[in-house]
Computed example of a mutant assay.
Amino acid sequence: MKIRKHGLAEAVCNAGGRAGGVHPYCELLCILEGEAELEWSGVAYPANGTALFVILPNTPHQLVQRSDTLRYWYAEFHAEEHDPLPAVDVVYQWNGQQGGIDWDGDPYKALRAAFQAVCMLMTAESSLPWDLFAEALASDLRKLLMLLTGAISTRTKPAPSYSSSETVVSETMRFLESMFPQPLTLRTIADNTHYNPSYLVRLFRKQTGKTPFGYLNELRLNAASEYLLHSRMSVQQISQACGFQSIHYFSRTFKQRFGAAPSEWRRDRRG
């Protein structure tokens, strides 16, 4: 595990404030105090008092403050092969549970103690050599990931029942959300579900009102808008990072969606 960026933050008198973006790293986001929502891949996940979110690489996310005071820590990291990163379906399940966890009950007490230890370590960062701090932080994050996976596996609450078509569409959406920067074809998307491409398109449109590529295009444009707002990347670099094979197609579809070309849209909002 390689630590990319981390921080311990307290936002006061900032209800409605936002923080986040898109980056090619895993991230742990721990709410310590206050109310907030994590807007992640088009879904809002509420947090009240305590929450621990896992954010997958290349997925657009925004933390929206809902109370006057909000305390949280975050850590972005590059996960290596031996790191205990939960499976994608486990991450979605876990993030969806954050509004209703009893952190005083089993098996969550150990998990809470682990993320409080990360908070204490970040508080003491200035008194430690960087190499020692980074090694200790990586160790604590690995422990959190292992405990998180264990907490999910021991949870006894039954999963909601979905029809087979809903499951297929949900799996397809998750696949697109995690793979949107990659060059994808309808065959590639269909192969992931083991369904005929034309049948998958009909099923997806019936459930969502759009095609798989329509949804994929939304993901890419949303990610591009975050890059434009929060990075210094060129329009060409953003186009490539979001999976567009042509900067001309990117510029045209971005203007159709947001009403201005990417460079103009960035200039108007960043001043």
Rank of each mutant, 00 (worst) to 15 (best):
I3K: 05
M1P: 07
A117G: 12
R142W: 03
S239F: 06
G209M: 07
F244E: 03
Y195C: 12
G16Y: 02
G21D: 07
M179A: 12
R267T: 10
E35S: 11
G214V: 03
G21M: 05
P24F: 08
A260V: 01
S225N: 02
M173G: 03
A224N: 09
P158T: 07
S198I: 10
K109M: 12
K255V: 11
W73E: 02
P181A: 07
D131F: 11
W73K: 01
S246R: 04
N14Y: 11
G209D: 09
D191R: 08
L144A: 00
Q98W: 02
Y215S: 08
Y92N: 09
E81S: 12
P183G: 03
M173F: 02
W130Q: 15
V169R: 01
R205G: 04
Q256T: 09
S139F: 13
Y72H: 12
R4Y: 13
A113R: 14
D131H: 11
L63W: 03
C13P: 00
Q97P: 00
F213V: 05
A11G: 10
Y74P: 00
E135V: 08
I3R: 02
Q98E: 08
D68S: 15
S178N: 07
D106E: 15
P129Y: 01
Q182E: 14
V88I: 13
L145R: 01
Y199K: 14
I31A: 01
V235E: 10
L28M: 10
S165D: 15
G243S: 07
H230R: 15
A241M: 03
C13E: 15
R187C: 05
Q207L: 06
I189N: 01
A136Y: 05
T188K: 11
E226I: 00
R202D: 12
G20L: 05
Q93A: 14
P129T: 02
R266G: 01
S231W: 08
F258G: 04
R252V: 11
S41F: 08
A224V: 06
E125D: 06
G100D: 12
H194N: 14
A223G: 11
S165Y: 10
A44T: 05
P212N: 08
G17L: 04
K255P: 07
R202E: 12
V12S: 09
G20A: 05
V91L: 08
E10K: 09
W103P: 03
G259D: 04
